[in-house]
Design a protein around this nucleic acid. Structure first.
Lengths: 186, 186, 186, 186
DNA sequence: AATGAATGAGGATTCATTCAT
DNA sequence: CATGAATGAATCCTCATTCAT
């Protein structure tokens, strides 16, 4: 008895969307074919047709996630004119973009957890980081770029897990200091 | 038929050890009662005897993990005399301590991933962070302490995932800048 | 809600019985945990509790099968007094024992099929054959024993697959010839 | 984008080849449309186009197999002149032909296993055996032919599964005895 | 004529947990 | 107090087959 939806392009895309949403909700561990299929409104058998493997699905999902986040990051920095605007862009990234959503927060940490154990995901993360670095290099020296990147990472994490509120002024301050010429020691 | 091990104190401890080792190897998702019991050389039934729940086991494991890492952190900073030594302590933390082992790296990210979704673990992390903050406050002002903490976090993560080698000199430099008095703008 | 049968020794045995019956009915390929569990009146989860693996189950089943058949074979030959009775024992084996049941026929061929591809089962078969050989050696020389063994195998197979009826007289004849001293050639 | 292979006669043949190779490798149970299609380098949909059924494919494959083996058998015996050469032909069949390859061994036993349960394959085997019998009848009486056939079967199987090496001299001897006139019973 | 997409049934396993002993 | 046996739910995945194109 012919079930509807015989022709369904972008089904693959819909599955990836559903996968990301599910991971954000229940973690990678809680992301089963069943749940994703249900959320994407797709028969269970369709899952392994489009993605040979649970692995392949996860990889596709996180690839898309990285691309999205990376894009946002680059857009901000590409738009900036001069170091002052660049610093302001970074403030925006930290306070508005990076873990804008709880979902992004969860997805990032789930990805890191995978990356810490599996080379395939580590490559994904390394790639992501190298993109960030390149974007920062438009405005900052190599060392400073690296440090700003770390600061973004760290501040974002601490902001999301900590209990205290962080205000933009402090972030702006820290960026000014980290981008200042090194003091003569002593 | 007299199964051995009639008297086995610190069995609880051994189970926690085994749990951490298993998480480091296979992630939280791959950590089952079975695997942990096998690694701890403990009968399967013993697992739910000592820990009502898988949850309880995980929480116990991560609590121990946080305490260990936190202790290391505090020891370094307690030993430092004056801001110069404090900065050097932080360099040591970043380059030697934090993700000394691959296991620590994995465990941290697994914990963060849990924390991003579940309040119980979020509390654990918040507590950990507040300890770090307090330790840093021995030597630095509140804002700077917060920023150093972020830098430690960020540099450590980027060092562990990135491909490039990081040298202590750069870290030392960054710390000097972040702890310098803010420049007068423009 | 406590399902009955809390204490059920010889459950393992019952599962093996069910497995053999299922293999005989549907072949190894058609032998699923589900079917066997149903036939043994055992919950599905019980299958992998008693046998780590489908493999382990199959091996256990075929081991039992070989032992049973081997036993029958040896009993016949042990009971025989003198070469005449030994030959008659062999006639009995071919015409009554070996593939007494259609089940035995199927099981033997399923086992051979496995053995042809997988060493574990090949060992089982090799062992079985060596037992037969030893039993025949009670009454015949090494070469003749080997040939009788082959004849048993071949006649049984051809009898089971062929369309023609085989009568005991012919078998008796063939045995007399194969056990006769070799003619001088030419 | 112009998928190649618009014109592909003997695709059917190629599929059968692939099926036999797959059966030899993974058994009938492990032989799926997918595997065979991949090995034959043929689209999956093509499988059920050329063979209505998995059944039909298997039957076609085993038919070809029987024909091949039977042909070899008949050729040997047709070429023989006189009983001495016929016996020597049989020695050749046993020691060189029958399970020349591991593949032939596997295929034969897989076929027997099917035949033991399913009439369609039983017919195939019965036919094969009747061909062998007819070929042997060129040189031997009905009873002896039957017994030689059994001996071929049995010796071949025992040779392939046993651990001991078999030498041609013994086979030759056995054949001489089995073809000798029956002794007068003692 | 030929095929890629799609699917539902069923496969083996793994597992946290329960409970009688 | 401790545990081995037991179990049902859920896991991923494989597959023969259907069918619109």
């Amino acid at each position: 008895m012919g079930r509807a939806r015989r022709f369904d392009p972008d089904r693959r895309t819909r599955i990836i969307d559903a996968a990301l949403a599910t991971i954000a909700e229940d973690g990678v561990a809680g992301t089963s074919h069943r749940k994703v299929a249900a959320r994407a409104d797709v028969p269970l058998g369709s899952m392994t047709y489009h993605f040979a493997d649970r692995e392949e699905l996860l990889r596709a999902a996180f690839s898309r996630f990285c691309a999205t986040i990376s894009g946002r990051f680059e857009d901000r920095l590409t738009a900036a004119r001069g170091p002052e605007e660049a610093r302001e862009a970074v403030v925006g990234i930290i306070h508005e973009d990076v873990f804008a959503t709880r979902d992004d927060l969860v997805l990032t940490h789930e990805l890191y957890a995978l990356a810490a154990r599996e080379p395939a995901y580590r490559d994904l993360v390394a790639d992501w980081m190298s993109h960030s670095h390149k974007a920062l290099r438009r405005h900052f020296g190599a060392h400073v770029a690296r440090e700003i990147d770390a600061l973004i990472e760290g501040l974002t994490i601490h902001r999301s897990f900590g209990t205290r509120a962080y205000d933009r002024g402090l972030t702006r301050d820290a960026l000014r200091r980290i981008t200042s010429p090194p003091e003569a020691p002593g």
